[in-house]
C-alpha cells in the first residue's frame, strides 16, 4: 500500500516533467482572460492555460535539482573516494578540509550571492546547489568508503596490479552504494526545495516562465480568484517531495535492517 502511494506520488510529477513538454501544446488554449475558467484548470494571470503551463513547468523544477544532485555526487563522490583511499593523511586532509569551509554556509544565501552577478540564470542556480551539496556528499562517501578502502581486499587488488579506477569504482564504489541510496531521497528533496525557493524569489528564471515555483509566485495574488493557477503547480511540487520523503524513509529502514543482519 505504502509502496503504491510512493510510486504514484513520484510518477505523476516526474511524468509531467519528462513527457509534459512534448504534449503541452495539445492543451494550450489561446488568448484567454486572466484567471479565467477556460480549459480543465482555468487560466493563469496572463490568460494562459494552466494545464499547459503545468506540463511545461516541470522540466526546470525537477531537472535542475536532479542535475545538481547528480553533479555533486560525481564530483563529491570522486573527492570522497580519493580521500578515503589516500595512503597519506595529508592528502586526505587536503581534499576534505577545504570543504569544511563551505559546510556551514546557509544554502539560500549562497544561491542569492551567486545570483547577483550578471542577472539571474538557471545554470548558476544549479551550479550553486551542486556546490552546496558537495561537502556533505564528499564526507558521506569518504566515511562509507573508509572501511572498504583500508581492508585486505583492496590491498590484494593493489598487489595484483589492478588499475586505480578499477579498484575505486569496481570495489570501493560498490560498497558505498548502500549509503548513497539511503541518502539520495533526502538530498533530492532539499535540492528541489532550494531550486524552487530560488525561482520563487526570482533569483533563477524570468517571471513569465512556466516553471512550477515561478508559476506559484506569479499566481499567488489570484489564489482566491482562481486557486488552481497557484495550487496545481504547488501540488506537483508537494507530491514529488512527499514521494521522495516516503522513498527515503523506506530506503533508510531497509539499510538499517541490512545493518542489523
Amino acid at each position: 500500500m505504502r509502496r503504491v502511494i510512493t510510486v504514484l506520488l513520484l510518477a505523476v510529477p516526474v511524468a509531467a516533467a519528462v513527457l509534459g513538454p512534448l504534449i503541452a501544446d495539445l492543451f494550450a488554449t489561446q488568448g484567454g482572460l486572466p484567471y479565467g475558467v477556460d480549459g480543465p484548470l482555468g487560466t493563469d494571470n496572463l490568460g494562459r492555460d494552466v494545464l499547459a503551463q503545468l506540463l511545461k513547468g516541470g522540466a526546470t523544477s525537477l531537472g535542475v535539482a536532479a542535475g545538481a544532485v547528480l553533479l555533486s555526487y560525481l564530483v563529491g563522490g570522486l573527492i570522497g573516494l580519493t580521500a578515503a583511499s589516500a595512503r597519506s593523511r595529508t592528502v586526505d586532509d587536503a581534499l576534505i578540509r577545504p570543504l569544511d569551509v563551505l559546510l556551514p554556509l546557509p544554502s539560500l544565501l549562497v544561491v542569492s550571492v551567486v545570483a547577483i552577478g550578471g542577472g539571474a540564470s538557471l545554470v548558476k542556480v544549479g551550479l550553486a546547489v551542486a556546490v552546496i551539496n558537495l561537502p556533505t556528499v564528499a564526507r558521506l562517501v569518504r566515511a562509507a568508503a573508509l572501511s572498504a578502502a583500508s581492508g585486505p581486499v583492496v590491498e590484494a587488488l593493489r598487489m595484483q596490479g589492478e588499475s586505480w579506477w578499477r579498484i575505486q569504482l569496481g570495489f570501493i564504489g560498490r560498497s558505498v552504494l548502500a549509503s548513497v541510496t539511503a541518502d539520495i531521497g533526502t538530498r533530492l528533496t532539499l535540492a528541489i526545495f532550494l531550486v524552487a525557493s530560488a525561482n520563487f524569489l526570482g533569483l533563477g528564471l524570468s517571471p513569465t516562465s512556466a516553471d512550477w515555483a515561478v508559476s506559484i509566485a506569479r499566481n499567488r495574488d489570484g489564489l482566491l480568484l482562481q486557486p488552481w493557477a497557484a495550487l496545481a503547480p504547488a501540488a506537483m511540487l508537494v507530491a514529488c517531495t512527499l514521494g521522495l520523503n516516503l522513498l527515503a524513509d523506506g530506503l533508510l529502514a531497509r539499510a538499517r535492517r541490512l545493518e542489523v543482519r
Partner: peptide, 23 residues
C-alpha cells in the same frame, strides 16, 4: 511530520495567508 516536511515554505505561507489572513 512526514507530510509537513514535504511542503515547501512558500507554499505553506501562501496557503496560510489565503486561509487565516484573507478568509
Amino acid at each position: 511530520t512526514l507530510g509537513l516536511a514535504a511542503i515547501p515554505d512558500f507554499v505553506l505561507a501562501l496557503v496560510f495567508v489565503a486561509v487565516f489572513a484573507l478568509q
